[in-house]
Simulated assay, not measured.
Amino acid sequence: MNTSPLEDASLLRLMQLVSPTLPIGAYSYSQGLEAAVEAGWVSNEQTAESWIDSILAYGLVGADLPVLARLHGAWSSDNIGAVEYWNDFLYALRETAELRSEDMHLGRALAKTLVGLDMEVAAFWQNRKPITFAGVFALAAVCWGINVRQALLGYAWTWAENQVAAAIKLVPLGQSMGQRLLTSLIGVIPERIDEALSLPDESLGRSLPGYSLVSMAHEHQYSRMFRS
């Protein structure tokens, strides 16, 4: 079945947006995984899969993904008040200094990249405080004609890929193990997206105390490869 030029363009733009070559520095963050490995919570392929899927299920599904959907809708309707509300809501869910710093860095880096690609509407977000990666990601998705479900799939994929890449270095795992992890995550991500899209506003939030603890521990970890 043939696709339209607009569908082709939006798919290619999504691939550009989630590409590891995008110059925002996402590869330098482990989101607490490094401290989880140090603590012995993650030590092999099975525990890495459990760790990553648990954060996806109890973190991204309740927070990043449904908020990203709301941000996409707000940008689509040019409702800047709603954009700012959901951006600030998501930032408030970042429990540790490292997670807040990561969101600010990635959001600003993506905004700067988009301005360099002639998306002038992103310029304001380079200096706004607070800023979230999801807020700018949603802006890029709307400007590039990426629909909300595809945007959520791309966001979840790039997060999962970064987590697996970090696990390969930290546990360590082989490349084949990393590909098995990604294959397993591909099998569950669509279901997680469905769940995230079904949540009402009053159900949004996170429930990951262990994740917060290792993120705080990472701030003081003696030797580390990653910034979070």
Rank of each mutant, 00 (worst) to 15 (best):
G154Y: 02
L139E: 09
G116A: 10
E38A: 15
P20Y: 03
V42G: 00
N147A: 07
D103E: 15
F89W: 11
G205N: 06
A69R: 11
L182N: 04
V42Y: 03
M216S: 14
S176H: 07
A134P: 02
N2G: 08
R227M: 09
A63H: 05
S54G: 13
H220E: 09
W41C: 00
V164G: 01
L199G: 10
L152P: 03
V18Y: 01
A151S: 15
E219N: 07
L17R: 11
L17A: 14
A57V: 02
G154M: 04
A57N: 03
L110W: 03
A82R: 13
L213D: 13
I80N: 04
S4T: 15
A166W: 00
G59V: 05
T21A: 13
E102D: 05
A138F: 05
Y85L: 15
A9V: 06
A111E: 06
W41I: 00
A63I: 01
I186W: 00
I55G: 10
H218A: 05
H218M: 04
P190L: 09
G174W: 03
K129A: 09
S184A: 15
V142G: 08
S228I: 03
S50Q: 12
I80L: 13
L93P: 07
D64L: 07
L14I: 10
L11W: 02
W125I: 01
I186R: 09
D103H: 09
L153T: 02
E38D: 13
G205C: 05
W157F: 10
P200Q: 08
K112T: 13
W125F: 15
E95W: 04
D88K: 14
V18I: 15
R128T: 12
A82S: 15
M15V: 09
V148Y: 00
L114R: 12
Q175I: 15
M119Q: 11
S176Y: 01
S19V: 12
I80S: 04
R149D: 01
I189V: 14
P23L: 06
